[in-house]
Design a protein around this nucleic acid. Structure first.
Lengths: 214, 214
DNA sequence: GCGCCCCTCCACCGATCGGTTGATCAGAGG
DNA sequence: CCTCTGATCAACCGATCGGTGGAGGGGCGC
């Protein structure tokens, strides 16, 4: 570590809807002279207001929060404050969460069971612009590379799957989407292929497992 | 607050698999002379060893942890250390989690978005033996009282639902459970009635929503 | 003992679904 | 321009499912 880093502490903002977690994070970084915690926010809206007003080097961002969620906040910060590195810190590692956050422009993605020291190293790395991933998240991304875009549901397919999960028959779904029943069947067959299942019930189950449904 | 309470601080144990959360919780209570944090644990096994060895007045317990989960740990503590009050502190408020924890013998059930001061009050209340519930958890329990045991799936029904979620046809499920296809259909009809759905796909969805499947 | 619930099983029916093959069209991108 | 993908639709078939109306046995509590 160079003396320059010590002279210019990394300015942090903590975004999480759980007060206890914010306390814990602040405690991790306030004791270290290499960091300055500029402030905290409990949701995306607060976070944006705080960061656009006071700036930041690195933001520790939770994803699932009441009101504006983390993904939306990240996307917004990409446009209004592109120099700010966003490090996602969340409990969930589903495909939908991970991919959405990275596409939105997150610099890294860590799970909340990350040990303190690793968290500190990750924030330093993010400040340098390096990508930081929890092992399980990294594995998820590698799998995504090996298994290309083929098994990602299209927007329309996801709509159909949601309706099916809600109890719609093919006919119901067709009526609700103003298309023919045949098209619903086609979408469903594609869904089965992509999710590697054989019927609507297990498609719904797989949808929940992958975080496509909630 | 009486002077007696100040003289005999409440002995706390913190159980959570996230280091950051443990930090936050410890920070909340170590500054207050009314509490002493005896120790921390990252899963149920560690928690039991710690508490059976060093004792405790109140345990702050997460539910979903690697290895032994919180529910099992609570049940175990009921038998080996019945004087210890267990206060569940978790992110999740699904029916399955809440009911399982309370049945196991938890004194209270709080969500992690609880503010610090409320958390402190809750621990004091739990120490006195009072029940403490987050508002949304309380609502869930009230609903349970109004809507009796009628819509709780039996063990067998849950088995069938799991198989269906895994893609089993009625015939498959029958073969795997060594019973007739007719019985599977009967179970499914009961499941539909209890979950208030009309087909297997939405039954699976409802199963996930209620935390019956994972 | 009686009621209640759970689990088990049967037969029958219409409705729905899964699978196949094949087709048209619009938009994105090389 | 041509290809690829997504979205749309059609006709047909066998398989499966949802619904109904039963029925019997075992366990538990009052």
């Amino acid at each position: 570590m160079t003396s320059a880093e010590v002279n210019t502490p990394i300015r942090l903002v903590i975004v999480d809807d759980h007060p206890v977690v914010r306390d814990g994070l602040r405690g991790v970084f306030t004791g270290d002279p290499g960091f300055t915690v500029l402030g905290e926010a409990a949701d995306g809206t607060e976070a944006i207001a705080l960061i656009e007003h006071r700036g930041a080097d690195v933001v520790l961002m939770d994803l699932r929060m009441p009101g504006m969620g983390g993904v939306e906040a990240i996307a917004r910060l990409r446009r209004t404050a592109p120099g700010v590195r966003v490090l996602v810190l969340t409990t969930y590692d589903t495909d939908a969460d991970v991919l959405a956050a990275i596409e939105a422009g997150a610099t890294g993605y860590l799970l909340k069971d990350t040990p303190r020291e690793e968290l500190v190293r990750a924030v330093r790395a993010a400040h340098r612009g390096d990508s930081v991933l929890s092992p399980s998240v990294a594995g998820r991304l590698m799998g995504r590379v090996r298994e290309p875009v083929r098994d990602v549901l299209s927007h329309r397919e996801l709509e159909v799957l949601r309706l099916v999960a809600d109890g719609a028959s093919n006919r119901d779904a067709a009526a609700r989407l103003f298309i023919s029943e045949a098209t619903i069947k086609t979408h469903l067959l594609h869904i089965y292929g992509k999710l590697k299942v054989r019927d609507r019930a297990s498609a719904v189950a797989e949808g929940y497992k992958r975080g496509l449904l909630s």
